[in-house]
Design a protein around this nucleic acid. Structure first.
Lengths: 371, 371
DNA sequence: CCGATCGCTGTAAACGTTTCCGGCGAGTCT
DNA sequence: AGACTCGCCGGAAACGTTTACAGCGATCGG
C-alpha cells in the first residue's frame, strides 16, 4: 500500500501535496495560502491547520527552480582572516540580509585560477549575484565579468572602460594622506612596507607613495622601501629587512596586518613607537586599535565600500538593464598614538619620556583625526 | 516564431534541451554524456561539440532538485571577527571543499533566536548539513538539533545524553594548564578575566579556574576575577576594572581577544608584561603571536575541532543512520614571551632588565611549549 | 543459425514548487 | 432577467535536471 506516497517527499517529509490532501484542497490552493496570496477564509484555515499538523516547510530548492532565484549572494575575497574583509563582509551581510538573502563567502587566496573558477561557476546559477574584490585583475577576469550571466559588482580598481558595476577608493591618495601627516609631524626618513607590486592595490600604493614624496620634493631612498605580501608574517619580515639596512623615522604600511608585523619588528629591534619611529597602517581595521600603541591608519572605507557594493548589487538584481555604475569612497586618516607625537625636529631634547600620548581627535567618530 | 524557445531557459541561456537538439540526440543521451556516463563515441563527440558551441553550463538548482542535495554545508558561529572562528572555518572549508562542497557561513552574534531561526531553516533543505558552535545551549536548541531533518554536528559542550554528533574540548582542563604554568613560574596572585557566565564556555572556564586554584590549595580572592564578554573592548574594560582594585602578578583570559584587551590595559597602566604581570590567553589564535610580547595561550585545538567536525558531518551525510558520535580534542598550552619568565620569587632582585625573552620551545611546531 | 546478451538510445516520469488559465458560483449593473 | 464582473478554485504546465524503463540493432555462444 505504498501508493499514497506520491504525497510526500522521498525521505518522508511533507510536501505541498501532503498538506493539500490533508486540507482537502488542490495543491494550487494550498500553495496560494502558504504564500499568503488569495484563498477564502475557510480554505486558509484548513490549509494552515494541515500545514501545522504535518509540520510542513517549503523546499527551498524547488522554490528556487521555479522562481529562478536562490536568495544567495556570494562574496569573494582574498583572505577571510584579514580583518578588513571581515569588516567589509559585515557591512555587506547587513544589507544583503535586509533583502532577505544570505551571504556565501569564498576565500580565493588571491589565486587567479580560484577566482576564475568562481566566476565560471556563476553560470550555473547557484547564487543570485556576486561581489568580488580581486587583488589582481587580468583580461580573463574582465571577460568573465562582462559576460557573467548573473550580476557582479567589483570592489577595487578596474579598467576605466570595464562595463561592470564597481566601487573603489583612491588608495594613492590614501598613501598621500599618511605621508603628508608624517611630514607635517616632523618625520623625514619615511619608509614604506608594501604588498606585492603585481597586485592592483600594491601597485597603486607604490605609485601613491612615490608621488607623495615627489610632490614634497623629497628624494626617495630605495633602501626605505620593502615589499612582502599583505600578511602579518611577511610584513614583519619585510620590516626587519628594512630596519637592517636603513633607519627610518617613520613607516607607512600597505595594510594593517603589515603594520602590526612592522610594529612587532620595531619593538623587537628596540625602537620605540612613536618616539623613534612613527607608524601608519592602512585599512583602519579594528586590529589597529587593539595594538599598543594604537596604530594610526588610513581608512579606505571598507565598510562603506561593502555597503555600497551590496546596494549596487541588489539594484542590479532587481533591474539587470541598469547601465554600469561606478562609485568612489574617499580615504581618510585616523591619527592615533603610533604617530601621534610631533617630532622635536628643531627642538632640543625636551620631554624625553613623555611616552605615547593619545591624539586629540577632531574626527566625528572616536577614531581619530580626518586629514 | 517563438515556439522553439522550449529549448532554452527563460533568460535565453542554453539548457540540456538546447544541446540535445543541436547535437540531434535526445535529452537523455545529452545528459548522459554531459555526466560522463555512457554514450557511443559518436554521440559523445556530437554532444560535447554542441555543448561547447552554445556554452552550456548545467543549472545547479535543477540538478539539486533532482539529486536532493545542494552541495552546500553551513557553518554557524557567534562572531566571524574572532580569529578562533576564522581558524575553525579554514579547517572546515578545507575538508568540505575536498568533498566538492561549499561552505556557507552564518554569524549568529550569539543570539539564541538567530540560531533557532537557522536551525529551523535547515528544514527547507537549502544545505546538506550544518556545523554549529553555539555559545549558549537551551532546551529549544537540543530539540531542534535532535529533530533536524538534515545532519548537524555541534562544536562545543553539550549535554551528555544529547543524541547529536559532537566534538568538544576540555576547556576546564585548558584553564588548569594555564594556572599550573603560572604557579610553576612563581606567580601567586593570579587574576582571571572571563566571558559571560551564562554561556557554556564562560561557565566551564570559571569552574576550571576555581578548581585549579583549589587543587593547589589557594584561596581565590574574588577581586581578582572579572567578567565581560568575549570581545576585545570588553576584555580591556574588564581588565582595567580588575587592575583598579587589585594587583595581580598574572592574568588568565578566557580567550585571545580578551587577552589582547588585557595586554592593552596592562601596558596603558604602566605594568610590564611579563615582568610585572604574566598574561595567558586562550584559543591560541594567530592574534596571540602578533602581539608584542607574544602571548602565551591555551590551545583548544580549534582547527582540529573544525576538521573533525567536518569529517563527522560528511560521514553522516553519506550515512544518516550512523549512531551519534562524540569526539574530544585535548587542550595544550603554548608558552610564549608574555609568561615566559620565571618570577624571581625567592631570588633577590637579579637581572632587573632582562626584558621579554623568547621561550625555549619543545613543542613540535614553532608555537611553544606543550604542557 | 537462432536465442540470449549487451550497448546504446529515446520516451517519459520523476524532484517540489509556483502560476497560468479556464470554470463556476455569487453578486452587480442595466 | 440577462450580461457582466469578480473572487475563488483545481487541473495542468511549467522550471531544468537525472534516471527507470523499454526498444532495438549488433554481437556472441551454443
Amino acid at each position: 500500500m505504498g501508493r499514497k506516497r506520491l504525497q510526500e517527499s522521498a525521505d518522508g517529509r511533507p510536501t505541498v501535496h501532503t498538506v493539500a490532501a490533508r486540507a482537502g484542497v488542490s495543491i494550487a490552493s494550498a500553495s496560494r495560502v502558504l504564500n499568503g496570496v488569495g484563498g477564502s477564509p475557510e480554505t486558509i484555515r484548513k490549509v494552515r491547520a494541515a500545514a501545522a499538523e504535518v509540520g510542513y516547510v517549503p523546499n527551498a530548492i524547488a522554490r528556487s527552480l521555479q522562481s529562478q532565484r536562490t536568495g544567495l549572494v556570494a562574496l569573494a575575497v582574498e583572505d577571510i582572516g584579514n580583518p578588513v574583509y571581515v569588516a567589509m563582509m559585515r557591512a555587506i551581510e547587513a544589507v544583503v540580509a535586509s533583502s532577505g538573502r544570505q551571504l556565501v563567502v569564498h576565500a580565493t587566496g588571491g589565486r587567479i585560477d580560484n577566482e576564475m573558477t568562481l566566476l565560471r561557476r556563476l553560470a550555473n546559477r547557484y547564487v543570485d549575484g556576486m561581489i568580488i574584490s580581486p587583488i589582481r585583475v587580468t583580461d580573463d577576469h574582465l571577460g568573465a565579468l562582462a559576460g557573467s550571466p548573473v550580476p557582479v559588482v567589483v570592489i577595487g580598481q578596474l579598467g576605466a572602460d570595464a562595463p561592470v558595476d564597481n566601487v573603489r577608493t583612491d588608495s594613492r591618495r590614501g598613501v598621500a594622506l599618511a605621508v603628508d601627516h608624517l611630514l607635517a609631524t616632523g618625520r623625514r626618513r619615511i619608509g614604506f612596507v608594501n604588498g606585492p607590486l603585481d597586485t592592483v592595490p600594491g601597485a597603486a600604493r607604490d605609485a601613491g607613495f612615490r608621488a607623495a614624496l615627489a610632490r614634497h620634493g623629497i628624494h626617495l631612498d630605495e633602501d626605505l622601501v620593502e615589499v612582502g605580501d599583505f600578511q602579518y608574517a611577511a610584513g614583519r619580515a619585510a620590516a626587519l629587512r628594512l630596519l637592517a639596512r636603513a633607519s627610518p623615522d617613520a613607516l607607512v604600511c600597505a595594510n594593517d596586518l603589515i603594520a602590526v608585523g612592522a610594529l612587532h619588528a620595531l619593538l623587537a629591534a628596540g625602537r620605540r613607537v612613536p618616539e623613534d619611529v612613527a607608524l601608519v597602517g592602512m585599512d583602519d581595521t579594528e586590529l589597529a586599535q587593539m595594538m599598543f600603541p594604537q596604530l594610526s591608519s588610513v581608512s579606505l572605507g571598507s565598510a562603506e565600500r561593502g555597503r555600497r557594493a551590496a546596494e549596487l548589487l541588489l539594484q542590479r538584481i532587481a533591474d539587470p538593464t541598469l547601465p554600469p555604475r561606478r562609485e568612489q569612497v574617499p580615504p581618510s586618516l585616523a591619527v592615533r598614538a603610533s604617530s601621534g607625537t610631533t617630532l622635536p625636529a628643531a627642538r632640543p631634547s625636551a620631554d624625553p619620556l613623555d611616552g605615547p600620548t593619545a591624539p586629540t581627535p577632531t574626527h566625528p567618530s572616536s577614531e581619530g583625526v580626518t586629514a
